[in-house]
Each structure stands twice: as structure tokens, then as C-alpha cells.
Amino acid sequence: MRVYPNQLAAQLTKLKSVYLVFGDDPWLADNCKQQILTAARNQGFDERITLDTQDTGFQWSQVEQEFQAMSLFASRRIIELHLANAKPGTDGAAMLQQLVAHPTPDTILLLMGPKLGMDQTKTKWFKALDAQGIYLPCTTPEGAQFQRWLVDRIRELKLKLNRDAEAMLFNLYEGNLLAADQALKLLKLLANEKELTAEELSHYFEDQSRFSVFQLSDALLENHKSRAMHMLSQLKAEGTAMPIVLWALFKELALLLKLKSAQEAGTNLNAMWSSLRIWDKRKPLYQSALNRLNLLQIEKMLAVAANLETKLKQQGEEDWVGLSHLCLLFDPTAHRQLAHIEVC
């Protein structure tokens, strides 16, 4: 059963035999793990065994032995298993299915690993475990979801921040829950229960937000210029290789070109979403871009991207100014205002 991290507390009154904590956000994954461990200890699960599939000499038979072993110290135990690459392999998949086919009320399996793809959640081993327990996808919240997380965390820590201070924290730490939580805990120590302003926060923190090229792509498709410029600046500051950013933009522009060409030819786009691997959640992003950009503008953007790639490959020049120019062109007004500027 899929349960989101913010819903976990309500699910821990009666413990399940399996918990699947998968995702790339370290704060969310650790927070879920600690909630489960605390609830388990409170209900008599006093012994904890930790195994990692990456450890030298690890054998899946160890997991089976731990499930069958009688505890020397407690009648109930938690087996925490870290699954590298979220792939148990043939032997591991068979073993996990075998174990959950005969659950015991005295043993909890806590399985942890990186983010799962849709194909992995459709495997037999995952479905078998999910049917017996709770799956917690620990994906970093973005935009309004991150803002809700931030407000909730501020409330939990009983901090007092005015709206400008909250907005500053949002801009500083979106995409990095771990840094945001550390910052809030520091404020808890420093604030001494007084209300904090944005000006006071500026003395404490540096910009530590973390973004991926995929988040940048989404912001551009939605025409969130200031957000996209902030992300691009952060990607550069974090040392993200420019070819990776260019690859992401080329990918989106190539998709937009196919969709726009089909649209102008009178083709029903509903038949194209699946073939282009554009899922329901992302359709509105592309539709937004298609509604404001014409075919000529998209072709112009691809030409700019090609010029940037040529400079990079032939001259070894990372033109981040030109890349900023390209990002601005996702807004059609920029095509008129920047038409006199050539990226070459």
C-alpha cells in the first residue's frame, strides 16, 4: 500500500510486517525510518538487525537465517535491509517473495533503497512485499509541496517567522530538505522564541537549494522565468556540467518540435503522448509550452542550442550567458525583445 511520508504517523498504530522506504531524498527516507523504528520499539520490537546487499560477502541466505533465528535478547525483532540499486536480482527476489508468503507477527522487514522506477514497482517481488506492508516513496517535494512541508516543519519546531522570512527560506532551500531542516533547527537555537525577519535570516544562511536539470526543464516548460534563472545559476554554482544541461534542453526542444509540427499538421496529440513517453503528469507542461510558442520560435531555440553545443565541442567554451539567453526564449516575448542578440 502506497503511503506518502507525511501520512506515515497515522499508519503506525498497528504495525505492518513490511515497510518499503525507497527514494533519493535522504531527509525523508531517514525521517520515515526513524518513525518506524520508534513505533516498533514502543510496541516491543527491541532487537534490530541491519544488513546491506553491498557488504562484502553478503548472501541472501543471511536474510533467511535472520528470519528463522530465535532472538537471544528479545522476542520481537526488526530486520533492516538496504537494497543497493533497488534490484534484488533473481535470488533476492525469490527469497523476498518466499519470506513474505509466511509473515510472522514477531518480525518486521524494513527494506530501504534508492528511488524506484515505474517498472520496478510492477515486479513480482515488489508487489508481494507491497501487498503485505506499506510503500513509502521518498521523493523531494517541489514548489507548493515543498512550501507546505516547510510551513509544517516550522510549526512542528514552534518557530516564529514572518512571511518574508518564510519566502526567503523557500528560495534558499527548495530541493534540499536536509539543509532546510538543519537550518530550521539552527534557527530554533538562535531565535530564542522571537519572530524572525528575512533581514535577520540573511545573516545566518547562504543559498543552499539543490536542483536537477529535470526541474529546470519543468520550470522552462511552465514559463517560470525567475525560478528557471535561479535554478540555472545554482546548477552552474554546483559545478553541473554544461553538456548535461544542454542535453536536457535539446531533449525538451526536440519533443516540442515534434508535437508542434504534428499540431500544425492537424494531428491529434492524444495519439502521440504515449509514443513520445510523455506521461499524464507532464502533459500540462508541454501543452503550456505549445500554447505560447510557435514553430518558428522552437526552431530558433534549437538553432541557438546547436550553436552553444558547437562552441562547447569545437572551442571548449561553456557559454552560460548564452545558455541563459536560450532559457529566456521559452517565453515568446523574449523572441521579440532579444531578437537583435545572436548567440554564436
Score class of each variant (00 low, 15 high):
Y4S: 01
Q7H: 11
L8E: 05
L8K: 07
A9T: 02
T13M: 06
K14G: 10
K16Q: 11
Y19R: 07
D25M: 04
N31S: 08
Q35Y: 11
T38Q: 11
A39D: 08
A39H: 10
R41Y: 14
R41S: 14
I49K: 00
T53H: 03
Q54P: 09
D55Y: 13
T56K: 09
T56E: 13
T56G: 08
G57I: 13
G57H: 04
E66C: 02
Q68M: 14
I79F: 07
I79T: 01
A84R: 15
P88W: 05
P88F: 07
G89H: 12
G89A: 11
D91N: 15
Q97T: 13
Q98S: 12
L99E: 02
A101R: 08
P105G: 06
L109A: 06
P114S: 03
K122W: 09
L129A: 03
G133E: 13
I134K: 01
I134T: 00
L136S: 00
L136F: 09
T139E: 03
W149E: 02
V151P: 02
R155H: 13
K160A: 13
E166G: 05
A167S: 02
A167R: 02
F170G: 05
F170L: 02
L177V: 08
D181K: 11
L187V: 12
N192V: 11
E193W: 14
L196Y: 00
E199W: 11
E200N: 07
H203S: 10
E206D: 14
E206Q: 15
E206I: 15
Q208D: 10
F211Y: 11
F214H: 09
F214P: 00
Q215I: 05
L216A: 00
D218W: 06
L220K: 00
L221T: 00
L221R: 00
L221K: 01
K225V: 12
S226C: 12
R227Q: 06
R227A: 10
R227G: 00
A228N: 02
H230Q: 15
L232I: 04
Q234K: 07
A237F: 10
E238M: 09
G239D: 12
W247Y: 14
K251S: 14
L255Y: 00
L255M: 06
K258Q: 08
L259W: 01
L259F: 10
K260L: 04
G266K: 07
T267Q: 03
L269A: 04
N270R: 05
N270L: 12
W273V: 05
W273C: 04
S275F: 08
R292E: 10
L295N: 03
L296Q: 07
A306R: 01
L308Q: 03
E309G: 08
E309L: 15
K311L: 13
L312C: 09
K313N: 10
G316P: 04
G316L: 11
E317L: 14
W320G: 03
V321K: 12
S324R: 03
L326N: 01
L326E: 02
F330Q: 01
D331I: 05
D331S: 03
D331L: 09
D331N: 11
T333G: 07
R336G: 10
E342T: 15
